[in-house]
């Protein structure tokens, strides 16, 4: 079976990898590149644990082939924090908006992408934007508060 050679950028760095033609981007990130921050919940597009961005668009990496990353710019949870945590991460901690944490990387990537596109979202916008990120633990309210707070923080620092 011929492997596919892919040249891409991940979190701003040029990367190359070989993958099976039917291997998902999620499996490539985790199993070939050691980027295990991106999680697998369902593998079928329902839970959002595998959220990444492709050319700044939020997607489920379990529904993208590794081969489709050719020439694209991929953003994963590993690229979110700089020297300090991103405000979305910091506020999730402050609001105790996580328990087991399996959904958290996906929520952080999705919420960061939301705030880049809609810096001042109302609660309904946040809830719909994150509707594809399931959380079994928190009951969501704390996550929503954390994202609202992060939006405020980003507005101040802008």
């Amino acid at each position: 079976m011929a492997k596919v050679h892919v040249t891409t950028r991940i979190n701003g760095e040029a990367r190359e990898f070989l993958c099976e033609p039917h291997q998902t981007l999620l499996d490539v990130l985790r199993d070939e590149l050691g980027l295990t921050g991106t999680k697998e919940g369902c593998g079928s597009g329902d839970c959002g644990a595998c959220s990444v961005t492709i050319d700044d668009r939020l997607v489920c990496s379990c529904l993208v082939l590794g081969a489709e990353a050719e020439g694209a710019e991929i953003g994963t949870i590993e690229g979110v924090a700089g020297a300090e945590l991103h405000p979305v991460q910091q506020k999730i901690l402050e609001h105790a908006a996580l328990q087991c944490g399996i959904c958290t990387p996906g929520i952080v990537v999705a919420a960061k992408n939301l705030l880049e596109r809609h810096p001042d979202p109302d609660e309904t916008t946040i809830r719909y934007w994150l509707a594809g990120n399931l959380c079994r633990c928190t009951g969501y309210d704390k996550i929503i508060r954390a994202v609202q707070d992060a939006a405020k923080e980003l507005a101040h620092s802008a």
């Binding site: 597009g45 959002g48 959220s51 492709i54 668009r57 939020l58 997607v59 489920c60 529904l63 993208v64 999705a110 939301l114 719909y128 934007w129 994150l130 509707a131 594809g132 990120n133």
Partner: peptide
């Protein structure tokens, strides 16, 4: 059709 993530594809 689906979530934000689904609509991205």
């Amino acid at each position: 059709i689906g979530s934000t993530q689904i609509q991205g594809r």
